[in-house]
């Protein structure tokens, strides 16, 4: 669970002094905290994101490669959580879910 997923930053904003943004992970978009890369990234940059936090900036080539490898390794758990769980988590989850 220590693996981060690379994605492209498509939006940066300031949430009352808290740097947030939207990152596109191969088509899946998700809110991400940018506090740990504040001032270091711009829209269009790529970053490794771990549990909702961008932790390091990477180049596009590296981002693409890592994403592909994660897919081949079926290690995109985090992305699955994002896709299936993120919207659901704010609503009660029935026993048979997940």
């Amino acid at each position: 669970m220590c693996l981060g997923i690379p994605g492209r930053i498509v939006e940066i904003r300031d949430d009352g002094g808290f740097p947030m943004g939207v990152v596109d992970f191969g088509g899946v978009k998700r809110e991400v905290c940018l506090a740990y890369l504040a001032g270091e990234v711009e829209v269009g940059d790529y970053a490794i994101v771990h549990v909702g936090f961008a932790i390091s900036k990477v180049d596009e080539e590296e981002a693409r490669r890592t994403f592909e490898v994660l897919k081949e390794m079926s290690q995109l758990d985090e992305l699955e959580w994002m896709r299936e769980v993120a919207e659901k988590s704010l609503n009660p989850q029935p026993p048979e879910a997940s």
Binding site: C33, V51, G52, M82, V85, S89, L90, Q93
Partner: peptide
């Protein structure tokens, strides 16, 4: 019990 999986602690 109300147990939920979240992606991020911010969720």
């Amino acid at each position: 019990g109300d147990v939920r999986v979240v992606y991020s602690p911010l969720d």
